[in-house]
Amino acid sequence: MWFILPVLGLILGAYLGSTVTFQLPAIYLKYMSIAVLASLDSVFGGIKSIMEEKFDGTILLTGFFTNALLAALLTYLGDRLGVDLYYAAVFAFGVRLFQNLATIRHHFLINYRKKRSLRRGEKSE
């Protein structure tokens, strides 16, 4: 039951976000969406690193915030410069997101098979 605490955190965060009356101006919607994408990528990266047993809390936390901020800032800079960095960020983070998801799925499958073969081995013995 290792995932209960993070899920509770997610629910609490969603509740806090819905109670906040602050309304984001429509101009910043684009940058906000990129920040959300970047943070989603960071979160899945963190889950992947847990699966691979290489987890580092500091890397995750710093990565989460800096990725989100930098993604938003770079998109803003791109808008100022006339280069649509928005699509580049969406592409980069999207690809990484799916890769992370695929890795997580692989690990789940490997773990499941290992357990099953172990159980079979126990039964056959």
């Binding site: 290792w2 605490l5 993070p6 899920v7 509770l8 955190g9 997610l10 629910i11 609490l12 965060g13 969603a14 509740y15 806090l16 976000g17 819905s18 906040v20 602050f22 984001l24 906000m32 920040a35 959300v36 943070s39 989603l40 960071s42 979160v43 963190g46 889950i47 847990i50 987890f55 809390g57 500091t58 995750l60 936390l61 989460f64 915030f65 989100a68």
Partner: peptide, 18 residues
């Protein structure tokens, strides 16, 4: 790893709902 992940999920929740 529990605590950092929870913190990160909390902020992700806020960001997502906003």
């Amino acid at each position: 790893w529990h605590i950092p992940i929870t913190i990160v999920f909390l902020f992700l929740g806020i960001l997502l709902s906003l």
